[in-house]
């Protein structure tokens, strides 16, 4: 079996060097606005995406610019919305389906897992499903067990889906535009805690290619691989570690499927120590796969320490703020685990 490569990326428009500061959710909105201006087949469908502006305000006032035909409010019918997305995508449209909380993909799962993901293969390549599903995941808002899950592993486990987890505002825009271009169903898992965070975002019709990891920080002592909200926590931890003389490389895979294994293995070889950080529950999480990929590769021979995973507890997310915090890796947990890894080995 070969590791997936990132060969067939549509050419991005020439990247302007210009950036502006915007929030993660503004960046997503910017991407959707750009895609809709360019291609009349692109439209948004979901609960309260219109006048309300989206449960997390991501579509905002797009309805006033673009109108209710392409910013389409739906009834509370996730399975129906998802199926309508699949059908529209099979017949020439490029729907962006918003699911208010990624937990509610459970309602829509038949259309995601049995339909969208399989249709292209099952039908012998006769049709494809160029659909984007946007859904916020993650904990930290006190919304408790049915509104706080990190379910990326569900989707990575379904061949036919691509899975993206932007950790910065610029990636939220660039990855979404790549997802919209892609001829396959792409699940974009956003993070609720990131919506209001700001960053420098490239202006215009830019791309972040699917299947290319980011390495926002390089250091010689260990490699921290983190996804979603844990990327910013890992970077914060890396600052603290640096003050203590430990230099960490931080890798953000950005795309979970297809995965940029090359960057992961290269950075692991360079440091010989690896800490894997995910918010999702530990058992059979995405980082279990990353751990297996490292173990099965020649990078294994470079390891000076056992691979270490930091993950959410194997529990539903509790409501109480202290309990919720204790359920998923925080900055101090990353600092402690990294220090342990470097000092012991």
């Amino acid at each position: 079996m070969t590791i997936e490569t990132t060969a067939a990326q549509p050419a991005a428009a020439p990247a302007t060097a210009e950036t502006v500061t915007m929030t993660y959710s503004e960046a997503i909105r910017d991407a959707m606005r750009i895609a809709m201006a360019k291609d009349p087949a692109v439209f948004i469908m979901g609960e309260d995406v219109g006048t309300y502006g989206g449960a997390f305000g991501v579509t905002g006032e797009l309805i006033n610019e673009i109108g209710p035909d392409r910013i389409r409010d739906t009834t509370i019918s996730e399975l129906g919305i998802m199926g309508a997305g699949v059908g529209a995508a099979m017949t020439g449209m490029r729907p962006i389906v918003e699911i208010q909380f990624s937990d509610f993909t459970a309602q829509a799962m038949d259309q995601i897992a049995n339909q969208a993901a399989k249709i292209h293969f099952m039908l012998g390549g006769a049709v494809s499903v160029p659909m984007v599903i946007r859904a916020p995941g993650g904990s930290g808002t006190g919304a408790a067990a049915q509104h706080s899950q990190s379910l990326e592993a569900w989707f990575v486990h379904i061949p036919g889906l691509k899975v993206v987890m932007p950790a910065t505002a610029d990636d939220a825009k660039g990855l979404l535009l790549s997802a919209i271009d892609d001829p396959n169903p792409v699940m974009v898992i956003e993070h609720k805690l990131l919506y209001k965070t700001s960053g420098e975002v490239r202006t215009g019709d830019i791309r972040t290619p699917l299947g290319v990891a980011a390495v926002p920080r390089e250091g010689k002592d260990l490699t921290i691989i983190a996804t979603g909200v844990e990327v910013s926590r890992a970077l914060e931890a890396a600052e603290i570690l640096a003050a203590d003389g430990i230099e960490a490389t931080v890798v953000d895979p950005r795309t979970l499927k297809p995965l940029d294994s090359d960057t992961i293995l290269r950075t692991v070889k360079a440091t010989g120590r690896v800490l894997l950080v995910q918010e999702a529950v530990r058992t059979l999480g995405f980082m279990s796969e990353v751990s297996a990929i490292i173990s099965e590769s020649d990078a294994f021979g470079y390891l000076r320490a056992p691979i270490k995973r930091l993950a959410g507890l194997d529990i539903p997310i509790p409501y109480a703020p202290k309990l919720e915090r204790a359920s998923v890796p925080q900055v101090e947990d990353i600092v402690a685990a990294a220090t342990d890894l470097v000092r012991k080995w």
């Binding site: 006190g142 919304a143 408790a144 067990a145 049915q146 509104h147 539903p316 509790p318 409501y319 109480a320 703020p321 202290k322 309990l323």
Partner: peptide
């Protein structure tokens, strides 16, 4: 109020 004496021992909150 996320208290141990709550109906769900602070694990559920208003929605549960």
């Amino acid at each position: 109020l996320a208290k141990e004496t709550g109906y769900c021992r602070g694990r559920g909150g208003s929605m549960h």
